Amino acid sequence: MEFKHIKKIQIRFGDIDLLGHVNNGVQLSYLDLARMDYLMQVYGEDIEWKDSALIVAHLTIDYLSSITLNDKVEVHTRIYKIGNKSIALYQNIVDSMSGEIKTKTSQVMVAYDPKNGKSVPLTEILKTRIEEFEGEMAVE
């Protein structure tokens, strides 16, 4: 599977737990950082998050191998399916030197209106820009 979006991650000393590994919770922040970078790059302009948002509704995560302070890692992100109100994506944290997948995830994000507290349809412009960036994918 091809990942067109790659975000390099700087591991900080504060990311490390007592065992010398990047804390699992910190890895979630790496995923968040990469998702934001992906959406800003693909959307191509500032996103007004207070009016509408994409929120993580489902996350499956496998911690396959530990990450240490001296590792060089990057997050690979790919949206593989677009629904009416949601997108499905894969994100992997990968050792940029060896290509080893350290952490593997599958996620669903839902378009959400924070003012009304309800899910809403994805905007057509976001769907179009994701399709242009990713190429062929499943569209519901």
Rank of each mutant, 00 (worst) to 15 (best):
residue 92 N to K: 12
residue 86 S to K: 08
residue 88 A to R: 14
residue 92 N to V: 04
residue 46 D to W: 11
residue 6 I to V: 14
residue 136 E to H: 09
residue 24 N to M: 09
residue 105 T to R: 02
residue 129 R to Y: 07
residue 75 V to F: 01
residue 55 I to K: 10
residue 139 V to Y: 04
residue 89 L to G: 02
residue 74 E to W: 01
residue 95 D to A: 09
residue 24 N to A: 10
residue 56 V to Y: 09
residue 1 M to L: 08
residue 115 K to E: 15
residue 96 S to A: 14
residue 134 E to W: 03
residue 104 K to V: 09
residue 74 E to M: 11
residue 90 Y to H: 13
residue 54 L to S: 08
residue 52 S to I: 04
residue 127 K to G: 01
residue 36 M to Y: 13
residue 95 D to E: 08
residue 6 I to M: 08
residue 120 V to A: 01
residue 57 A to I: 07
residue 75 V to R: 06
residue 17 D to W: 12
residue 139 V to M: 09
residue 105 T to F: 04
residue 137 M to E: 02
residue 106 S to C: 01
residue 65 S to D: 10
residue 85 K to H: 06
residue 124 E to M: 10
residue 72 K to A: 08
residue 121 P to R: 03
residue 6 I to L: 10
residue 16 I to P: 01
residue 18 L to V: 11
residue 99 G to S: 09
residue 8 K to D: 15
residue 49 W to F: 15
residue 80 Y to W: 13
residue 6 I to W: 09
residue 75 V to Q: 03
residue 49 W to L: 13
residue 113 D to K: 03
residue 107 Q to C: 12
residue 103 T to M: 01
residue 93 I to M: 04
residue 54 L to K: 11
residue 81 K to P: 07
residue 3 F to K: 12
residue 45 E to V: 07
residue 133 F to D: 03
residue 125 I to S: 14
residue 116 N to W: 03
residue 21 H to L: 07
residue 15 D to V: 02
residue 74 E to H: 08
residue 130 I to Y: 02
residue 5 H to D: 04
residue 53 A to H: 05
residue 69 L to S: 08
residue 83 G to V: 10
residue 18 L to N: 12
residue 38 Y to V: 06
residue 69 L to E: 09
residue 55 I to C: 06
residue 71 D to N: 14
residue 134 E to L: 12
residue 113 D to R: 03
residue 77 T to V: 15
residue 135 G to F: 08
residue 36 M to P: 00
residue 112 Y to F: 15
residue 74 E to T: 05
residue 134 E to K: 09
residue 48 E to L: 07
residue 113 D to A: 04
residue 16 I to R: 04
residue 34 A to N: 07
residue 137 M to K: 09
residue 95 D to P: 00
residue 1 M to Q: 09
residue 57 A to G: 15
residue 19 L to M: 11
residue 56 V to K: 04
residue 26 V to G: 00
residue 42 V to W: 06
residue 64 L to S: 05
residue 97 M to H: 04
